Amino acid sequence: MSLDDERNDGLYGGSGETRTRLPEGEGGGQDVYGGGRRSSRSSSRSLVTVVGVVVVLIAAIAFANRGGGGEESAGGGGDGKKAGADPTAASGARPVDGKTSGIASGFAKSEQGAQSAAANYAVALGSADMFNKAKRDSVLQAVMAPSSVNQFKTELDKAYSVGFFKNVGLNQDGSTPKGYQFVSRTSPIGTKVTNYAPGKATVEVWCSGLLGLAGEKSTKPVTSSWFTITMKLEWVGGDWKAATHSQKDGPAPVPGDERASGSDEISKAAEGYGGFTYAR
């Protein structure tokens, strides 16, 4: 089984073709992360960035001024209204406070609670912890429905094979070679509910992913991918749990004109920037 085939199994985050952008006019022997020229679009992109920051600040201030909290806010509001016409609009609900094995838990029994659960579970299932047997089992125990845990353990034990570890640049036992930083991350871009009934929900999570080894001599540099995860969730023991999990490639945007960062910069970013608790 090839790496692409395994990543498309829908068992862990990140799939699809990736590309490495090398510096113009530079050949072999250079850092594969490289550095390229910035195009004339930089000035216009800077203006868009400034406008975007202003919009985010205004939204943050408005959210902070809402105050509140309590059970009504956590459950998505007492009036039963949806987040709005835009499926990516924030509901204003507070993130959950609970954690199970380091993964967010205690989601509201609502559509937005199901979306929050699916987003957080997508992150966990696409993390570097999945490459370690003990940590992988802990993740599955935290996010999967009890009826699905054993099946997923069996399937993933087969998928995370010596061959797969070799394809991503790891040692035979899934550990990271000395002198390198292994990166495996999934970042949700948006969520939507495609089916909902009391105690059951089907949620799609549009994601970007990072996978690879950061290091000066890495032949498996950190690359990005885009994919959509579909989870069928069940309400079990007072929380949402994933009964099934699958993924497909895309939608993938047109690559930007940013230069590829050096391996040292990628290593420091992977080590220094933590993750989020996602909530609608």
Rank of each mutant, 00 (worst) to 15 (best):
S224K: 13
P95N: 15
T228R: 13
G13E: 01
L213N: 01
A279H: 00
G113M: 08
F182T: 04
A118I: 06
V236P: 07
S40Y: 11
S218H: 06
T194Y: 05
P198N: 10
G25I: 05
V55P: 06
A64S: 07
P95K: 03
T18I: 14
G80L: 11
S73Q: 03
G70P: 01
L233D: 12
G52D: 12
E17V: 01
R41P: 05
A59Q: 11
N167S: 15
N150C: 05
G70E: 04
K109W: 11
Q151N: 00
K81M: 04
G69C: 02
Q112H: 05
R21Y: 09
I189P: 02
R280N: 13
F182E: 06
T228G: 10
W206T: 11
D9R: 15
G212Y: 04
A119E: 06
K82L: 09
D97M: 05
A279M: 07
A114S: 07
S263A: 14
Y273G: 09
D86A: 06
S147C: 02
Y33P: 12
K135A: 15
N195T: 12
E258A: 08
L170K: 07
G163L: 11
A252T: 11
R66G: 07
Q112L: 10
V139C: 12
Y273R: 06
S138M: 11
I103W: 02
S91M: 06
E234N: 08
V236S: 00
W235L: 00
S218Y: 09
M1K: 13
G272M: 13
Y160M: 13
T194R: 06
D79R: 12
P198W: 05
G256Y: 15
G238P: 14
R21E: 09
L233N: 03
M231R: 12
R280C: 14
Q115D: 15
S138Y: 11
V162M: 09
D239F: 07
T191F: 03
L3I: 10
D137M: 07
S2I: 09
K178A: 15
R94F: 09
G68R: 01
E204K: 09
S138L: 04
D137T: 10
E265C: 08
S116E: 08
F165C: 13
V162R: 07
K217H: 07
G76T: 00
G35P: 14
V236F: 10
A104Y: 06
V162Q: 05
E234F: 04
G106D: 01
G250I: 12
S267W: 06
F276S: 09
L211G: 08
T202N: 05
P221G: 12
T191G: 06
N195R: 10
G77F: 00
R41K: 09
A74L: 04
A114Y: 08
K81G: 08
S138G: 02
Y160T: 00
A83D: 14
R19P: 01
S161Q: 02
S40E: 10
K158H: 13
A122S: 15
A90V: 15
Q181T: 02
G34K: 09
P87V: 07
A128H: 02
G169C: 10
V222K: 03
W235R: 07
